[in-house]
Write a protein that binds this DNA or RNA. Structure first.
Lengths: 365, 365
DNA sequence: GACCCGGGTTTCAACGTTGAAATCACGGGA
DNA sequence: TCCCGTGATTTCAACGTTGAAACCCGGGTC
């Protein structure tokens, strides 16, 4: 079969109608070279008549850029990644880029494929939110395509990264509970497999411990709630509402019950939402008996019962920094790797009200 | 500046190392022509050594396809569209396609741009979830790129569409309430601007009315709750939790209060979630006093208080049908337009339990 | 021994665009 | 009058890939 007649007019077709050379049409479109008003008008008329659109593939082949970025996330269906994708698409659009979304499902092979640029060579840069792979694997797999890693799972110094500080943010969230008078704190979302290394959840646990230490407190090991090991077959991964629900229910059903627990720090909002349900089902008052904080500030967290106090990462800023970083690499591939921080803030709501209104538990939207 | 040396090896580089012509390397890679085992081995070694990746732009230019689809949605951050994007990416991947995600923010201009294929000529087809534009505008704007419309806003016969039947599904949801003994029903999500035409919400209202008629009932106009007119500046659009909350709160604060309302059908889950909060704040028991149903079956709807009964569209099937349709158009641009239906089901939960357990209101995950 | 067959490989040209450089038209200054 | 310069336009080549067709060569066949 001969090359598909892609059914679109080309510069030459427009040129024939306008009675100029096709290069002049190109000049009109790109605006790079001066064109007289009269020919410009003729060309524009012809463009309109044929409904001409430039063939981006040809342009890319010629100039070496596609104005396309690839965003690779584990699951688009999780609120955090949906918000992230939204932020990235918006930030990319502001600088004239489109975004190809790739879902890895947390599959290490697919993350490596994403890092290497496979099936994506036509994209100018990659933003990778890794979930399963580690530093060495990433460094081994990465190709020539500019790469920026989102999140703290990867810690290698040799890659550009944009992160939100999990340790200090979770420390702040924990300190918020302590300031409100909570003394027996738990953490939901520790990871069983120590070998997996620097997952964000580990850093959040570290932040939790840091805050406890600073207050001269210690966590009861019974209150460090593991989540199930990562399972690809699960549609949503392990940091899910279901998992939070199951783990807290298990705690409540255990021999010691709450065992005095009066504050629960969750590795993310979904776990917290599951926890809220388990506590509610068991008749445990939140925040009366147990205060709960999450991490993400998912949109739904303002509408839980009670509304969830959470750490809100500035995803807009995160996305802008990431897009800026990857474009810097596109311009200068030898630019030294940077690590940038996106800000966050603590959003106090009724599930863990600030000290002054600790007992009131009034609803804060 | 001369064309960016895109820093990648080409077929020729590989050929030079393997000691064959570059066409042979192409043969090895595409597998189209027979290659002897020995040269294949040499070529593969060279490919590995250079870490060669085909330049998709060049391939596309030559063969006229990019293996890229564009998905255009209003807001990736809304659960429905996040789920939809997830489903589309998955369905596209299964047939070897990647997906570019475009966010229109419900802006009519951007929807038209998406329909026309602007900035997207390198994509083989477009899946458009329209929110603001109507039939004529769409037909006028569409370009040569194969286009499939998702959802029922567009009703033009001349476009391929994949829909979930809003009328019958909402009729079913309403009938579910009626079967459970509810007699004074309301609808949350009517649209003020009648000129906007066949938005999904109108069809859902129609389904609501159909079910009432079939049962010999009629809706009190006070119980038809409008949502604010569409406003682009709003980050989430009008079918939001906030809007649901505000509208139901306004009803409760009005002169007649609930006025006997014992069942509320919502145009989508977010509105329903906002409604649940307003009812809870006012101390109105759900489902005791008012039963609530939504539409979408957002993931969070299983975790609201009480869990939300909802219509669950089969987005996986919707996405598969849409991808199949658009690829059919890619193969045969003259293929006559089709309208396909994706299935849905009613997911009963505690906010509107089925007839048998209507009074119990037990939690169903 | 000339001929054909077919697997394996190569040559050629083209996809539509843009950087670079050549060409052209024309008005102003020497 | 001739030349220069500048703006406008055109010619040329190349980006990396693949369809089409030519080529090469060893093994049958008559």
């Amino acid at each position: 079969m001969s090359p598909r007649r892609s059914a679109g007019p080309t510069l030459k077709d427009v040129a024939a109608i306008a009675g100029v050379s096709y290069r002049t049409v190109s000049n009109v479109i790109s605006g790079k070279a001066p064109v007289s008003a009269s020919t410009r008008a003729r060309v524009e008329a012809a463009v309109a008549e044929l409904d001409y659109r430039p063939q981006l593939a040809a342009r890319q082949l010629r100039v070496g850029r596609s104005n396309l970025l690839t965003l690779s996330v584990p699951f688009l269906s999780l609120p955090y990644f949906a918000q992230l994708a939204h932020a990235v698409v918006t930030a990319a659009e502001a600088v004239g880029y489109d975004v190809v979304v790739d879902e890895t499902h947390g599959d290490p092979e697919r993350e490596l494929r994403a890092a290497s640029g496979y099936r994506t060579l036509l994209s100018d840069g990659i933003l990778l939110s890794a979930m399963s792979i580690g530093d060495e694997e990433l460094m081994a797999a990465r190709g020539r395509t500019p790469l920026v890693v989102l999140g703290e799972r990867i810690r290698a110094a040799r890659v550009d990264r944009v992160v939100v500080d999990s340790v200090t943010s979770t420390r702040d969230a924990t300190a918020h509970l302590i300031a409100a008078g909570r003394r027996t704190l738990g953490f939901l979302g520790t990871v069983p497999d120590a070998s997996s290394g620097a997952a964000a959840a580990d850093l959040r646990l570290e932040g939790f411990r840091t805050a406890l230490r600073a207050a001269g407190l210690e966590a009861d090991p019974r209150h460090l709630l593991e989540v199930s090991p990562w399972d690809q077959r699960s549609p949503d991964g392990d940091y899910s509402r279901e998992e939070g629900h199951a783990r807290v229910r298990a705690l409540l059903a255990g021999p010691d019950g709450l065992a005095g627990l009066d504050g629960l720090v969750c590795a993310n909002d979904l776990l917290a939402i599951g926890a809220l349900r388990a506590l509610r089902e068991a008749g445990v008052e939140v925040p009366g008996r147990v205060a709960v904080v999450g991490w993400d500030d998912a949109p739904e967290s303002a509408y839980t019962v009670p509304p969830l106090t959470s750490i809100a990462p500035d995803l807009g800023e995160l996305a802008r920094l990431a897009v800026a970083s990857v474009l810097r690499l596109v311009d200068d591939p030898d630019s030294p790797p940077r690590v940038e921080q996106a800000p966050y803030r603590l959003v106090p709501r009724a599930s863990a009200p600030p000290a002054s209104t600790s007992s009131a538990g009034q609803l804060v939207p």
